[in-house]
Nucleic acid binder design. Structure first.
Lengths: 326, 326
DNA sequence: TTCAGATTTGCAAACGCTTACATTTTTCTT
DNA sequence: AAGAAAAATGTAAGCGTTTGCAAATCTGAA
């Protein structure tokens, strides 16, 4: 920058202004400085800029897993949109481990980020402390509930479970099950399971089977199907906490010669691309993946531009996508 | 830090040393400083640290897409492993757009990262300039070829295509096709297509059908299957540039009443989880997803620890996973 | 006990920008 | 044309660390 200033015959302050707040510099100088820094291939040092300025153009995002299609989709949206506004994403994953989340949040906070975005509403004590102390907007996404730390953008997982139960009851289904991946660690999956159970019980007085699955992968779906049938041979319908589990169960049912939806109904969750292509096509509950990413970016950008913008707490809702398996 | 220094009754220099190079401080002071900074909840400002030190503990990784399972898997590995060594990942995606890649590389370089990791071997002129000028290790991953910019860790996509062709020929398959996603933009898919075509032609003197697909998603696989059959009704075997396309084709074949592998053989690429669960299970070519991530991290960490470590250019190879569709 | 050498600590100068404030130049009003 | 107000530019003080070098302290041999 010093170099550019010298060549352009101005002070570094003017160069800085020409580059960051062009309006504050006379058109003549501005063009000269732009031309020179172009010619010299000058690239500002973001680190120095961040240290001098109040905060860095970094945005920390923490998700449970990068390989989970839901979060991958949200991150996809966010990198693209934030990048366009000149922000860089720092992405961290904790694998549903709250201690690891705490360490990542602390690490991210020490970069003076412009915003911190975490997944879910349950955090370790230290995470809460760090987030509350952070001098930037904090968004808890993918979940809706009362009193977010700062802003919350997501939907009610409980409502998603309720929706599944209500739909089963409407269809006259009596012997049902909910299969959820890692219910012990994944709060959101657990909330769906509980919404399902409570609603089904409330509506019918009957007890649905609630079964955990070891992972959210296809293979577990097939295995879970077998376990459900072993426990309840007369099962009529199963709701899964993820489309991949549901598809795995469909493959397994195919192998077992069990016809879907004839002998068994299957309901997914996620509305992944694959749900549109299976035979038969998978009926599923669609969380607002993309909408969450968009809403988070829009809100954060707004907060950053107009600092007195109030926090929000949005429930983006879920939708039942009727296809052929229920 | 000043605060900690005052409370512990030492200078900030000593605090810095106690925290970063504990061996350079007497045990007595070290424990006192650690205790105080613990008590005060001191978190060092990474930005200031990076400005003062030679470079930042940031590692830039650029992939074509976050939602592509291959790269998601590699990133998964890398975030976890680098995080454990105190590095943060900055992740960028360019959607196979070289201009966008250029902008991202430039943006990342301005953070004085400890390493820069890009996908593939073809880059815009400006990207090459930035990467060559970067004062840090540069790794080009997911592809193997001669003369990487600095280090290269991947495998030969051409060899993957050759493997597919050779296997088809060994099986006595004559009327074959290769369906590739976005062959115009994805160099790696194109290299596989060319390896397939050249080898098949060389071995049999026959011309395989090479067809582009609009995307790498399931639906396109089904659509491509129909197009292949329209062009060549007697088709015996199709190699796909991705497992998802292959699975989409299997679903479509199912709908068409076409038996696999009886009437049509299908070969995938990727060895995604789903390949193990379809009916019949998908024969596929496995690129070394995980191995790439691990090798990149190992190499970069080595380079960072011992700066005079030489660059590498590794070919990790591909493997044919025999299952039931060919 | 003394003193050289090793170890520990402190001082102060970067690191490369941003920005409040002061100064200079330009523009406008009368 | 003079003076006030507005706009443009420069000066310099940070931002919170790290680190080379000097000073102080400690260690052990003579």
């Amino acid at each position: 920058m010093e170099e550019v200033a010298k060549v352009a015959g101005v002070s570094v302050a003017t160069v800085s202004r020409a580059l960051r707040t062009p309006d504050a510099v006379s058109p003549k100088l501005r063009t000269r400085i732009e031309e020179v820094s172009q010619r010299l291939g000058y690239a500002p040092n973001r680190i120095a800029g961040s240290l001098a300025g109040a905060r860095s153009p970094l945005i920390g995002v923490i998700v449970p897993s990068l390989t989970n299609s839901f979060f991958a989709g949200t991150l996809d949206q966010m990198t693209t949109l934030f990048e366009a506004s000149g922000y860089q994403l720092m992405i961290g994953q904790h694998g549903y481990d709250t201690d690891r989340e705490e360490r990542i949040v602390a690490a991210f906070a020490s970069w003076n980020p412009s915003a911190l975005i975490v997944t879910g509403r349950r955090h370790a004590r230290g995470t809460l402390a760090t987030l509350s102390a952070a001098a930037c907007p904090v968004v808890e996404m993918w979940d809706h509930g009362e009193r977010p730390l700062d802003s919350g953008i997501g939907f009610s997982n409980r409502a998603a479970g309720e929706l599944a139960a209500r739909y089963f009851v409407e269809q006259g289904l009596i012997r049902t099950a909910f299969v959820g991946a890692t219910l012990d660690k994944d709060d959101r999956a657990r909330a769906r399971a509980e919404g399902f159970k409570d609603t089904f019980r409330g509506l019918t007085g009957l007890e649905p089977l609630i079964l955990p699955a070891g992972s959210r992968e296809l293979g577990e779906g097939g295995a879970a199907l077998k376990r459900v049938i072993a426990r309840q041979p007369e099962i009529q319908a199963i709701a899964f906490s993820g489309d991949m589990l549901a598809v795995g169960a469909m493959f397994e049912a195919d192998r077992m010669g069990l016809s879907i939806p004839g002998e068994l109904k299957i309901l997914g969750y996620g509305d992944l691309e694959i749900a549109r292509h299976t035979n038969p096509r998978l009926t599923t509950i669609r969380p607002p993946h993309k909408e969450i990413g968009e809403a988070v970016v829009r809100h954060v950008l707004e907060r950053l531009k107009t600092p007195d913008t109030p926090s929000v707490n949005l429930d983006l809702g879920v939708k039942l996508i009727l296809r052929e398996t229920v």
